[in-house]
Computed example of a mutant assay.
Amino acid sequence: MYIRSLQLLREKVPSFQSYPFHLPVLRELDELQFHPNVTFIVGENGMGKSTLLEGAAAAYGFNPEGGTKNFNFSSYDSHSHLDEYLRLVKGIKKPDDQFFFRAETFYNVATNIEDMDSDPMGGGKVIDSFGGTSLHEQSHGESFFAAFNHRFFGKGLYILDEPEAALSPLRQLSMLSRIHDLVENESQFIISTHSPILMAYPHADIIQLTEEGSRKVGVEETSHYHIMKQFIEDRERLFYHLLQ
């Protein structure tokens, strides 16, 4: 386990009425415990999942827009500075690999890679560690998978914000397989997601965020699972209520 838990330094918070501390995930937060292998952060839009992951990643030393600790760029300085109010409780071991993957800003990471590789004094090509093909010359989903398959090499800490955003259901299943391979190779994942496919990964912890705070649940207890189950099993009834 590379990160054991995350604590909010509540005594330092200037006001729980202002952004980002008014978000449901932060209003009641003292500490979140992480699974040694896979932890999913789930909940409806606006609960603060991405803000929480961004803060945790920045507190660990990642660029708020994503990448490794060696990425140092900003296309638009919009992060919340939540990291200044968080304490990460780390494990004894340090990861050999680490990456913050953020679907919303992965295009910016791809652009920064091309900028670094265009520098004649830059040495080796960064894109080689992503499979060697420009991420901008691939589809959105293919570029995501280039990172998962080529850049993630194990014994790593991987913080992923909505990685399913550009992935088909079949690709999401493939991603589960890749996550498992990396977990078997001593990796830890902290993932925010809306995908019931991903959150069904066996033995993972699922932390569901609601207006009342956060709690650990099983996949069958999540609203995502209930809605998809209802859609698949009785969509006529669902449409009847939706479209009246």
Rank of each mutant, 00 (worst) to 15 (best):
Q98Y: 14
S134W: 08
H194R: 06
P163W: 07
G154W: 09
I190H: 04
N72M: 06
I159T: 04
Q33P: 02
P14V: 01
R237E: 10
P163F: 06
G123C: 12
G131S: 01
H81D: 15
T68G: 14
K94L: 10
H203S: 12
I191Q: 06
F152Q: 10
N185H: 05
L29R: 06
N185V: 00
I197F: 09
N63H: 01
G122N: 05
Q33M: 11
L52V: 10
R27F: 03
M116L: 15
V126T: 14
H226Q: 15
T133I: 14
E186Q: 13
T210I: 08
G43C: 08
S75V: 13
N149S: 09
L6R: 04
S195V: 05
M47N: 03
V38E: 01
L82T: 08
H226S: 15
K93G: 08
M121G: 11
S5M: 00
G55T: 01
E212L: 13
I197P: 07
M175P: 03
S187D: 08
A147W: 11
Y19M: 05
G123I: 07
K49M: 12
S174V: 10
E221L: 08
E233Y: 01
P95N: 05
I113Y: 04
S78R: 12
L209H: 09
K69D: 06
D77M: 02
F16W: 09
R171D: 10
Q138E: 03
A165G: 06
R87E: 14
Q17D: 13
T193P: 05
G66A: 01
L238G: 02
T222N: 11
P95M: 04
G156P: 02
Y85I: 02
Y107G: 12
Y107V: 13
P163D: 03
D77Q: 12
R4S: 11
E28C: 06
E211H: 14
V217Q: 02
D115K: 14
S129L: 12
G46N: 11
F16T: 03
L8N: 01
I232D: 11
S50P: 09
H194D: 07
P24L: 09
V13L: 08
S134A: 00
F153P: 00
I232L: 15
L157Y: 10
H22C: 01
M116Y: 01
D161L: 00
